[in-house]
Simulated scan of single mutants.
Amino acid sequence: MEIKDIAGSDIKPLLEYIEEQSSKDNADLYCYEFKHIVETAASHPTLSIEEYKKMLITSAKSGWSQTHRRISLVDKICDYISKGSLPMVQHKRKSLPSEYTSLISTLRKRLASTTLSPRTIENYVDAVWSFCAYLSEHNVQSLKNVTEQLVVAYFNGSDGKTRGRTISRRIRNAILKCLDLWEEGIGDRVVAMLPDCPSGTTIYPGLSKDESAVVEKILISDDASVSYRSKAICSLAFYAGLRESDISSLTCNNVNFKKKVIHIKQQKTGMELTIPLDVICSNLIVNYVRLERPPSQSPYIFIRKKTKGRLARQDMYEASLDVLSVAGVHANKGERKGLHLFRHHMATSLIETGANPAIVSAMLGHRDPSSALRYLNSDLELLKRCSLSISEFA
């Protein structure tokens, strides 16, 4: 698609949607980017969208985070024009009936006493708030008046946005945690109406043996085209299975080089975790600190070069791209990237060698010991080994 195709489109409905659901400031950001596309198309009509995004990167005068935001807006505008897809937005919190307000307040307090992270708690609150706001818009002021038709319409996207298994699970768990707010049977009745969506697990396009071997070669090599910071970050996901949030929050207090262990309190679950420190990870961290890390009083091991602050999510993603691009692995558009690719490899490698999934879950820091089974369920080669031959029944 060329930018002239975007420039000649009508995005007024998109802007109205953004302003209604989010804010005028957010809609103005879309409007600004669209105007910039129109101006660029006037002088470069044959420029493709991908070329336009590269131009934004090369001509950027601000930091990467702002440039990334602009590229994200371009992608969302393109998706709206080509597919009619409306972007996910952080909804305005409109006033709700007292019953729903009480539900959300109680839910937040009860989840705060659990080991869930603040981010996860907000995900639950947002799911319940959106559901309650939808009910309120359809003149349903209490759960006792909810109909199955209305619930089905909500999940089927009658408001332009379909919901799946995750949203259904969050709403179900939230109501079950607050059943005492209603007369007996009311909460259970609504829970029974929620769709039991099938698991969204698919065949995960992880690293093959050849691909993982190439990645490992990059991590242990002295190739200067990949920074020690990127290699150290990726090695912690590849060999230790750490999440990106835990890697970015690592401090010297978390890493014991003498005992060769890493001890952290996980950002996602709040659980404490102690895992072995691989010698490759150890060497890469030391090389980064000695040779690349800018002088800083920041407690975090991995920091930004300019601001010297803690790495953001995009920085972690960029680290994975550094390694994958040089390795020539998952380099094509549409192929899965990111640090979870390395974490997934670590899990499947252990299961493949016969490790107990419960032990693998413990090493990965899962709250549920059965969580590692998803890595078996999403790996085609492992599934093949579990299959039965029909020749026995012929």
Rank of each mutant, 00 (worst) to 15 (best):
A133S: 14
A133T: 10
A133D: 15
Y134L: 03
L135G: 06
L135K: 08
E137G: 03
E137S: 07
E137T: 01
V140D: 05
V140S: 08
V140Y: 08
Q141P: 06
S142W: 09
S142R: 07
L143Q: 08
L143P: 02
K144D: 15
K144W: 13
N145L: 12
N145I: 02
V146A: 09
L150S: 09
L150G: 01
V151M: 04
V151Q: 02
V152C: 09
A153R: 14
N156V: 05
N156E: 15
G157E: 14
S158F: 12
G160N: 12
K161D: 03
T162Q: 12
R163E: 04
G164H: 12
R165L: 04
T166W: 13
I167T: 11
R169E: 10
R170Y: 13
R172M: 07
N173P: 04
L176H: 05
L176S: 05
L176W: 03
K177E: 13
C178D: 12
L181I: 13
W182L: 06
W182M: 06
E183V: 04
E183Q: 11
E184V: 05
E184G: 01
G185W: 12
I186A: 13
I186F: 15
D188E: 14
R189Y: 07
R189M: 10
V191F: 14
V191S: 13
A192S: 14
A192R: 14
M193T: 11
L194I: 09
P198H: 12
S199W: 10
G200H: 12
G200M: 10
T201R: 15
T201F: 15
G206E: 11
L207D: 10
L207P: 09
L207N: 12
K209I: 06
K209F: 07
K209S: 06
S212W: 08
A213G: 08
A213W: 12
V214A: 08
V214Q: 07
V215Y: 04
V215T: 03
K217P: 00
K217V: 01
I218L: 04
I220Y: 13
I220G: 10
S221K: 02
S221W: 02
S221Y: 03
D223V: 02
D223Q: 05
A224M: 09
S225L: 02
V226Y: 06
V226A: 06
S227H: 06
S227W: 08
S227I: 07
R229F: 05
K231Q: 02
A237V: 02
A237D: 01
A237R: 00
F238V: 02
A240C: 13
L242K: 00
R243M: 01
R243W: 01
E244T: 03
E244K: 05
E244G: 03
S245W: 04
D246Y: 02
I247N: 01
S249D: 04
T251D: 11
T251K: 11
C252S: 10
N253G: 08
N254M: 05
V255N: 06
V255E: 07
N256L: 06
N256H: 11
N256S: 13
N256D: 15
F257T: 04
K260W: 05
I262W: 07
I264A: 00
I264N: 00
K265I: 12
K265H: 08
K265W: 04
Q266W: 03
Q267F: 07
Q267I: 01
K268H: 03
T269R: 02
G270I: 10
M271G: 06
E272I: 14
L273I: 00
L273W: 00
T274W: 00
T274M: 06
